[in-house]
Write a protein that binds this DNA or RNA. Structure first.
Lengths: 346, 346
DNA sequence: TTGTATGCGTTATCAC
DNA sequence: GTGATAACGCATACAA
C-alpha cells in the first residue's frame, strides 16, 4: 500500500496525493476530496521512513533515561511526551542503564531522531552521535543546552531549616558521585553549614534503593553512625530509613529528623509526614522537549542553561508539628500545632 | 555525512560499507578495518530513515498508553522497553488521553513503527492503522493478540478473603465502565458473593484519582454510604479513602476494612499496611513487546490470549493482624491463597 | 571478496 | 492546479 496505489485509485499523480496529505492549499477541493476518499478506502498509511528520507527530518525526539523507577522519571517522560506531541513530534525512549549494550541502543536511537535529550552519566556516548543535544540534570557543559533544577539552593534551605530546629549533628545520605544533582544537593548541605560557621560531615554513601536505606538505618541503630538529623538524597531512601528507625523504637523526629527529596506520593501518607523538596519535574521534561525542538528547527539561538525552581515541603519528619490529621494533603501543611499525629495499627 | 562519504574515505564501494555496518561476514578483515576507521573519523551516523526504507522495516515498536500516572504504566513501559532493547528494537511512545488529537499522534505513530501495543479505550483508532497489534489489559477480540492479568480470579479471592473475615456489607469502589480490567475486578467481586449465595452491591462509581477517594470517604463518614469493607479499584483510591477515614477517627480495619489493587510503594508504608493485589506488570510489558516482535517478524503463529497471574498481598487493612513492624517489607508476606495461579493461554 | 545498479516510498523542483 | 522526475541514503541482487 503506497502512495502510487492511492494516486491510481484517485486518478491523479502521486505529487497531488502528497500535496493533499501535507495539506497544501493549492489543490482543488474536488481533487482533494477524491484523494481523501482513496486514502480512506485503501486504508493508506504513509511510510514514515520514506517521508523522513525525503524531508531529511524524523519529526521525532529521543529521550535517554538511566531507569524508570519511582515517579521521577515517569513524570519527566510525561512532560516530555506531552510537549513533543504538542509540537507534533514523535518520542523515542531508551533506557540506558550504566553502559551495558546501552551504547548500541543510543547509537541506534541517533539514526532515527532529530535530537536527543539525555539524563544520565557518560554524556560522551551521546555527544559522539553528533545529534542536537539537551542535557537534563547535568553539570554545565560549554556549548550545550542544560536543564536542571535548583538543587543547591533547595538543599541549602532544607538544611538550614534543620539547623534552625536546633539540630547539630546532620548527616547527608546519598552518593554525590552517583549523579550530578546529588552532588549539588550535598553542596547545598555544605553551604548551609558554612552559613553558620559549622563544619559539615562527610556524606554517608548510599545508592538510591530502599534496601540501602535499611542498611543506613541499621548503622544508626547500632550506634555505628550518630546524628540528630538526616538529609537524604531522595525520598525512597528517607522513607526506608524512617520506617526502619520507627520500627526499632526510635522516635522520628524527636530523636532524629529525616528529610528527603522529590515529594513522592508516599511522603504525604506516612506518619510523620516526610519533609522533602519538590521539583517541577514535569516542567523539566516539557522544557527539554521544547528546547530540543527549537535546536533542531534552528529557531533556537545559543545553547542556554535553565534552572527551574524547587520548593521545600514542610511536613512532620523535620521536627515541625502540625494538626494531627490523616488526610493526604498534597500541598499545604501550614498549621504548626503542638501535637504530632500518630496513626498506627495495633 | 552519508554512506558515500564513508565509502570514498575508505576507498571502497558503498556496498562494502553497508556490509561492514551490517556485520556481514564476507568482508575481508583488512577492508573491514578501513571502513570502520573511516566511520570513526567521520563520526558517521547512518540514516535510520533510509535504512528503514530499504529494508522495509522500522525496527521500532510503538506503545500507546492512556497516561503515565502512578507506578503501573511506568513499570509496564520499563518492561516493554527492556524487552524491545533485548530484541534490538526501538520504542516509540505515545500517550493518548481520551481522544483529543491523540488520533493524530497514533496515526503518525503508525507511519514509523512495525507494530503497536495498545492500552486504552477505543481500540478502533489503532486497528485502522492496519499495523500489527497487541492489546494490553483489554477484552478479548477475535483475531487479536491480548495480554491481560488474572483480574477476575484475583478480585474473587480478595473479596472472598474479606467475606471470610466475617464482613457482610462490602462495597466495590471504582467504575467498571472506565476500563476493562476494572470491569473484571468487579466481576470477581460479584462472583465471590455468589459463591456464598450473597447479593453483591452495585459499584460505587469513582474515577481513579486520590481526590475521588476523598469524596467517597466523605460519603461514608456522613452515613450516606454504609459498609464494613471496601474493595477499591486501585491503591490510590484505597489509600486516599483510608487516610480520610483514619483522619475522621474511623478505625480501619476494625470498623471498616479497605483493600486496593496494584501494590504501590505506599501500600507497604502506611499503617495499617494496605492489603492489595499485585500484578506482574513488568512482565506484561515485556510480553507485549515480545509478542509484538514475533507478530512483526512473522515468527508468531496465530494470535493468542495471555493471562498473567495475580497475587493477593495480605497486610493489615483487611483485618488480618500481624507483627507490628515499621519495616517496609517489599516482598514477602505469607499469602493464604487457596488456588495457585498460573499463566494461561488459549 | 568487492563493485554496480536498482529499488524502497516520499518530497520537492520543475515544467506544463 | 497538476504531472513528470530527480533527489533522499541505504540494502541487496547480480556481476565481476
Amino acid at each position: 500500500m503506497t502512495i502510487y496505489a492511492v494516486a491510481e485509485r484517485a486518478r491523479v499523480s502521486i505529487a497531488t496525493v502528497s500535496r493533499v496529505l501535507k495539506g497544501s492549499s493549492v489543490v482543488t477541493e474536488s481533487t482533494r476530496q477524491k484523494v481523501l476518499d482513496a486514502v480512506q478506502e485503501l486504508e493508506y498509511t504513509p511510510s514514515g521512513a520514506a517521508r523522513s528520507l525525503a524531508e531529511r527530518r524524523h519529526h521525532t525526539l529521543g529521550l535517554v533515561l538511566p531507569e524508570l523507577g519511582g515517579p521521577y522519571y515517569a513524570e519527566l517522560l510525561a512532560g516530555f511526551e506531552t510537549k513533543a506531541a504538542e509540537l507534533r513530534q514523535g518520542v523515542m525512549l531508551v533506557i540506558a542503564k550504566a553502559e551495558g549494550h546501552g551504547g548500541d541502543a543510543i547509537r541506534a536511537l541517533a539514526t532515527r531522531v532529530d535530537g536527543i535529550a539525555f539524563l544520565g552519566r557518560d554524556v560522551e556516548r551521546v555527544r559522539r552521535s553528533g545529534k542536537k543535544l539537551v542535557l537534563i540534570a547535568a553539570d554545565s557543559l560549554p556549548g550545550v543546552e542544560v536543564i536542571s533544577t535548583e538543587n543547591i539552593a533547595g538543599a541549602r534551605r532544607l538544611t538550614e531549616h534543620l539547623l534552625a530546629h536546633g539540630r547539630t549533628r546532620l548527616l547527608f545520605v546519598g552518593d554525590p558521585d552517583a549523579a550530578h544533582d546529588v552532588r549539588e544537593r550535598y553542596e547545598g548541605f555544605v553551604l548551609a553549614h558554612h552559613d553558620r560557621g559549622l563544619e559539615p560531615a562527610q556524606p554517608v554513601l548510599a545508592p538510591f534503593r530502599e534496601s540501602d536505606g535499611q542498611a543506613v538505618a541499621e548503622r544508626l541503630i547500632a550506634g555505628d553512625l550518630e546524628a540528630d538529623a538526616l538529609v537524604c538524597g531522595n525520598d525512597e531512601l528517607a522513607l526506608a530509613i524512617m520506617a526502619r528507625l520507627l520500627g526499632a523504637g526510635v522516635d522520628v523526629p524527636r530523636d532524629i529528623a529525616v528529610v528527603g527529596w522529590d515529594d513522592v506520593m508516599t511522603a504525604r501518607y506516612v506518619r510523620p509526614g516526610l519533609t522533602t523538596v519538590r521539583q517541577p519535574v514535569r516542567d523539566v521534561g516539557a522544557l527539554a522537549a521544547d528546547r530540543l525542538f527549537h535546536l533542531v528547527t534552528g529557531s533556537a539561538k545559543a545553547p542556554e542553561r535553565h534552572v527551574l525552581p524547587t520548593e521545600v515541603v514542610i511536613r512532620g519528619s523535620c521536627g515541625c508539628t502540625r494538626t494531627p490529621s490523616a488526610d493526604p494533603e498534597p500541598d499545604l501543611y501550614p498549621i504548626p500545632t503542638p501535637h504530632p499525629s500518630k496513626v498506627r495499627s495495633r
